[in-house]
């Protein structure tokens, strides 16, 4: 090491330590704060967040039919249940279900015929069949996910197969009798 005379300042050890620690700590905090925007930039951007709600006109949906729409880049099924389908859903013993929910839990009060669910299988995220005409509705007359064989009933509840939960009901409101706003 250096061999020029260096005046030792032994008595100052504590102050020296304090300045070193303060500088290091301050620098570390700064680096941490700088990291925030660099991490946050990967979150949804403002234009994506602005698309967080979707309006759907449901006036043209006939009984027993469903439409697929997109909300937050995910498929959404809006289905108008027939009286028979409603009755079938209500006949089920809720206690026997894997994810116990009544049809009323999954629809808006007074509008049990409108079933709005995400078209995303709760198993691994495939889009179940059953919303389009002529598609398989599975063993329980609702939706059927072809990826790993999950069967959903007329209320979109899991009945058979590997999926752990019922099809998710997104937050939505009726803004009028014929328009719903999802999100």
């Amino acid at each position: 090491m250096a061999s020029l005379p260096e005046t030792a300042e032994g008595g100052d050890v504590r102050r020296r330590d304090f300045i070193y620690i303060a500088t290091t700590a301050f620098g570390a905090v700064g680096a941490g704060v700088v990291a925030v925007p660099f991490i946050n930039q990967m979150n949804p951007s403002a234009d994506v967040r602005a698309m967080a709600t979707t309006e759907v006109d449901i006036s043209a949906i006939e009984e027993g039919m469903a439409v697929k729409t997109i909300w937050q880049s995910k498929p959404v099924f809006v289905k108008r249940l027939t009286a028979a389908e409603i009755a079938e859903a209500n006949r089920v013993d809720v206690a026997s279900l894997r994810d116990p929910q009544t049809l009323a839990d999954r629809t808006k009060p007074g509008k049990p015929q409108w079933l709005v669910t995400l078209g995303v299988c709760t198993h691994l995220g495939c889009v179940p069949l059953g919303a389009g005409q002529g598609e398989s509705k599975g063993d329980y007359n609702g939706y059927f996910c072809p990826c790993h064989g999950s069967h959903y009933d007329t209320a979109g509840r899991i009945r058979k197969g590997p999926a752990p939960y019922n099809l998710e009901v997104p937050p939505y409101e009726f803004t009028s009798d014929t328009v719903i706003e999802i999100g």
Binding site: P5, T7, F26, G30
Partner: peptide, 19 residues
């Protein structure tokens, strides 16, 4: 950064004291 610069300067003075 102004505060950090002052701290860095003090650190520098300490490290180089007597050299």
């Amino acid at each position: 950064l102004a505060i950090l610069t002052v701290l860095a300067w003090l650190t520098y003075r300490r490290v180089w004291a007597g050299v």
